[in-house]
Simulated assay, not measured.
Amino acid sequence: MPVERLSAAQIEQGLEELPEWGLDQRKLYRHFVFPTFIEAWGFMSEVALLAETQNHHPEWTNVYGRVEIYLTTHDAGGISERDFRLARAIDLL
């Protein structure tokens, strides 16, 4: 079953429910800051487990206590509901 890319209006509506997330490079984006590298890495481990259960994996970077997450659905050619589902799950961590 193909994944559908969301319209700009649908993305804006979804972002209203996720105030910590924004758009960067046409992807959902959020940055996190942790006091230590170990805490950042632990968070990334939790996100990795979420991503694996959803079979939807983020693009991300980590430098010391900073983690940046970008979500997009390559099969859809942009942002899909899968990205918002993962973002909501990440926010619950």
Rank of each mutant, 00 (worst) to 15 (best):
M44Q: 02
A8K: 13
I38T: 12
I11C: 03
S45D: 13
E12N: 10
Y29V: 01
L50H: 00
V33W: 10
K27R: 15
A51F: 04
S7T: 12
G42P: 02
M44S: 01
T36L: 08
R5G: 01
L18C: 01
W41T: 11
Q10I: 12
A48K: 02
E17N: 10
E39W: 02
L6P: 05
D24A: 11
M44F: 05
S45T: 11
S45K: 11
A40Y: 04
L6S: 07
A40E: 07
V33L: 09
I11F: 06
G14D: 06
S45G: 15
F37M: 10
E12L: 07
V47Q: 00
F34T: 00
W41P: 00
A48M: 05
Q25M: 11
E12H: 10
P35F: 08
L49F: 06
G22V: 11
W41N: 05
E16W: 03
R26H: 12
D24T: 06
R5I: 11
P35L: 06
V33K: 08
Q13M: 09
R30S: 07
W21R: 00
E46W: 11
F43I: 02
A8Y: 07
I38H: 07
V47T: 00
F43L: 03
L49V: 15
E39R: 05
L28Y: 01
P35H: 07
R5M: 07
K27D: 05
E16I: 04
L18I: 00
L28N: 04
A8F: 14
L49K: 09
A40T: 06
T36V: 05
S45Y: 04
L49N: 04
L49S: 05
R26T: 09
F34E: 01
K27I: 02
Y29S: 08
E20Y: 01
E17S: 12
V47K: 00
H31V: 08
H31W: 14
I38R: 11
L49E: 13
L28C: 03
K27N: 06
A51G: 11
L28F: 05
L18Q: 01
P19F: 05
E16V: 06
F32K: 06
Q25W: 10
E4R: 10
T36Q: 12
S45H: 06
L49D: 04
E39F: 01
V33F: 13
S45I: 14
Q25C: 15
M44A: 11
R30G: 03
L6D: 04
Q13N: 13
L23A: 04
L15Q: 03
L6Q: 13
G22D: 08
V33S: 13
Q25L: 09
A8S: 13
A9T: 12
S7G: 11
W21Q: 01
V33R: 08
A9N: 09
M44L: 15
L15W: 02
F32H: 10
S7I: 12
F34Q: 04
E4D: 15
D24E: 09
W41Y: 15
Y29W: 14
K27E: 14
L23M: 08
E39P: 02
A48H: 02
R5Y: 07
H31G: 14
R26S: 09
E46F: 07
T36A: 15
F34I: 00
F32S: 05
E16A: 15
R5P: 02
W41S: 12
I11A: 08
Q13R: 14
P35G: 10
L15K: 01
I38D: 07
E17D: 08
S7A: 14
L23G: 02
E4I: 15
G22C: 09
G14R: 03
Q13V: 01
P19N: 11
P19M: 07
P19A: 10
